[in-house]
Design a protein around this nucleic acid. Sequence first.
DNA 1: TATTGTATACTTGTATTCAAGTAAATGTAC
DNA 2: GTACATTTACTTGAATACAAGTATACAATA
Lengths: 234, 234
Amino acid sequence: MVIGMLFGEGKKTLGEQAYEIIRENILALRLKPGQTVYESEFSTMLNTSRTPVREAVRALHIEQLIDVLPQRGMKIALISERKVEETRFVRESLEVSAICKIVDQWEPVQRKYQDLYRALTSNLQSQKEVIQNGDAVQFLQADEAFHRLLLSAIGNATLVSVVSQMRGHLNRVRLLSLQEIPYTEGLVREHEQLLEALQSKDRDRATSILSAHLSRVSEDIQVVKDKYPDYFTD
Amino acid sequence: MVIGMLFGEGKKTLGEQAYEIIRENILALRLKPGQTVYESEFSTMLNTSRTPVREAVRALHIEQLIDVLPQRGMKIALISERKVEETRFVRESLEVSAICKIVDQWEPVQRKYQDLYRALTSNLQSQKEVIQNGDAVQFLQADEAFHRLLLSAIGNATLVSVVSQMRGHLNRVRLLSLQEIPYTEGLVREHEQLLEALQSKDRDRATSILSAHLSRVSEDIQVVKDKYPDYFTD
DNA sequence: TATTGTATACTTGTATTCAAGTAAATGTAC
DNA sequence: GTACATTTACTTGAATACAAGTATACAATA
């Protein structure tokens, strides 16, 4: 009946709130890949009826983060290497297209790009700070914010939303690999290089850095797959 | 209670069936942009309860094809020039990336690409036949099939699905512009040129043809917007 | 012991009921 | 006639009730 009455709470419906909460719990691996779950669990957990839970669960099902077994229950989707590669490709295509557009439009004198530059450097700073306490979740949030800042610059909300949907399928691998091999310094370095390429309007350099940056997950998944075999399928 | 008991009927849920039916009616403009609709309408129309309809409507709302006005009703989403441009950009990025991958992998001796070539030429043939009776909906279906064949070749189901979601926001403009200015011959010609470029493994030509091909909608929308002003917003 | 039929206790899928908000129609005072 | 309060008829949002499929436990039987 009341899920998040605590803080501000825009007029989101209970179903929308449930969606966000459950999704976040899946991506943070608090709900384990392969784990069996039931609508009634979420109902009592969130202190609401099955109806809003159902709405959330259907959306997550469409997003392929939850597998529904009719009349039997649901399972948190296993991580699929194929799906990871598919979403990685889509994400890379879109982010590369976006960065090209930004480089082409980049005019250091314009207020818009000064603000963007400031925001990005500020974000880079907090990335470095976050590294110290070694919290993978926190770093991932900062990383996501960095990419989101860049993408938002081209003013294409649909693209931002598609990319963040793709991210949902990459996040769990990233999370596991980060706490396995903490190469966060390298990632931050690449962010810096990307920003440099942007400033110097070096289109080719920007795209090649970004491509390499986003391709890491394809290598990491192999390592993580061996360490957590029952989180994976195919 | 029974929506499509008629034909084969895979074990889709009523909600999924309702989703497909309503979506198809929106894209075919049988439900007019801006038209007010109610859950109960669809309920009686589909002879089912509000629950499956609700499931369908929520999905369509997430897809931004339906606007929900809490406690007041729903409206079929108006065509937004901004949204059209956003989805066009996403689609172009993804299809261009896909065609690049295909060109790079293209080996005319491989069975896989022989089959693809045959399928594409066969589709081109039916495009030409469809032109004769001047049915815009039929042509759009053939066009969609052509692009889907190409995209499917890279074996990325996620990409195919994202593109088809983007198409949902372009389809209505295409439909209107086709019955306004029937330049279908030009479109078919471009399909042929694309196929030629593919055969000759001319990457740059393929991408430039495809880009131009997919950019048409940006020009068409201006014409259509004047003809059907109350279908549009912004 | 092995097998099979059956009751039972779950699940999700669907229908229905209830709550709460909106807007237009209606009535009333001035 | 006009402004304003109130009723009323609708809507979606949420909760509950019901239907139907699934898997397990277990007893009956060979």
